[in-house]
Each structure stands twice: as C-alpha cells, then as structure tokens.
C-alpha cells in the first residue's frame, strides 16, 4: 500500500509537469507568433501608404496599393526548421493629380508587384498552398563522441487568385525562397536547414 502511494505521487508530479509544461510551451509559442504578426502588420500599413503615395505621384492618378503577404512564423507543432505560414494584408489609396486624373491599382503579392489592368475591379483574393517537407536525423558514434545531425528540406508553393469582376482571374504562383519570402522566381526551390552537434562521451 505504501509503495502504491509513493508510485502515485511520482506519477502525479510527472503528469503535472508534462501537462503544464506543454501548456506553457504552447502559450509562449502563441505569444511569440502574435508579436511577429503585429510587427508584420505595422510594416505593411506603413509600406502600403508610402507605395500608394509614390504610385499616385508617378501616375498622376488616384492610386490604390494593396499588399498581401505570407510571412513565415514560429510553429511549435512543425518539424525541425519548418515554421508556419501566416497571412497578413494591408491597403491604402491616395489621390494626387493635376488636371485629369487616371485611376490605377496595384497588388503586391509577397515579393512581386502586379499591375491591375485599368478598369478591372478585384472583388476577392484567395490563396492555396502546397507544402512538401522532409526531414532526416542521423547519429554517428565513435569511442570519443557522438555526432548528431538533423537536416530538413522544405518546398512551399502559394497560388494567389485575384478574382476580377466580370473578367478572368489574375493568378500568381510563388515559391518559398531561401530568405523566407515568397516570389515567382522561386517556384520549385528547395529550402534546406541543417544542424550538426557533437556530444563527448
């Protein structure tokens, strides 16, 4: 009976640590990820307004500039070096013209700028993603030390579809580049992360 009680107490402490430790880790990851989103949102708001200002001045027009981005964020449930994909957007419109004004519209989808044809109206933006992730873990032991290595390869493709009112959709396909940003030139690119460490015996 005494032994059973002791075992119960040990199991209780371990279970509590396992449960609350995981909860704390999840809370921290959510907080860090939230901070990252706030930061991206502030950058986009500032950038959208400045870019709209520039376009309106250059085009002598009423310009609208929209930015759609998919920043990579912390992901506790992902594999080694995988991270997660989030989505954030912002837009601004500026009228700056002398005489007759034109009306121009631009979409910056991740790292690519798309000029929306005059007269076209975007009514919806949808995106689909295709992710491929492979990871490999190896350990080599000799009499002096154990050398471990982790390697992961990630390919991520996002297809953004801008629905045009009464016209054909504008489709932008982008791949994940080594700097963590998506661009058209990086479609099919593999991003590799590697870590090697030695533990002496």
């Amino acid at each position: 009976m005494k032994n059973m009680m002791t075992l119960d107490k040990k199991a209780q402490a371990t279970t509590e640590l396992a449960v609350f430790g995981s909860l704390i880790l999840i809370c921290l990851a959510v907080l860090v990820s939230y901070g990252q989103s706030l930061q991206e949102q502030q950058i986009l708001q500032q950038q959208a307004f400045r870019n709209a200002l520039k376009k309106a001045y250059n085009d002598n027009a009423f310009s609208s500039y929209n930015i759609v981005k998919n920043p990579r964020t912390v992901n506790l449930f992902g594999g080694f070096g995988e991270g997660g994909r989030s989505s954030t957007s912002s837009g601004a419109s500026v009228a700056w013209c002398l005489g007759t004004s034109a009306e121009t519209s631009y979409y910056e989808v991740n790292e690519d700028e798309i000029n929306i044809p005059s007269g076209s109206k975007i009514i919806d933006v949808e995106s689909q993603a295709n992710t491929g992730y492979t990871a490999q873990e190896t350990q080599f032991e000799d009499p002096n030390a154990a050398t471990s290595s982790k390697q992961a390869t990630l390919t991520d493709t996002i297809t953004t579809r801008m629905k045009v009112d009464g016209g054909s959709d504008i489709v932008v396909t982008q791949g994940l580049d080594t700097d963590g940003r998506y661009r058209q030139a990086a479609v099919g690119k593999e991003v590799t992360k590697q870590k090697v460490w030695t533990t002496p015996h």
Binding site: L28, L31, G35, Q36, Q39
Partner: peptide, 22 residues
Amino acid sequence: LIMLLSGSVNIWLWFNRNLAER
C-alpha cells in the same frame, strides 16, 4: 522553464522595441 520564460519575454521586448522604433 524560467529560462524559457525569460527568453520569450526578451523576444517580446524585442518586438515591442521594434514597433516603437519604427
């Protein structure tokens, strides 16, 4: 856990500082 918490708080302070500095 305390080390992890302290590291996370510092990352949050980094975000906060970046927002204020931008």
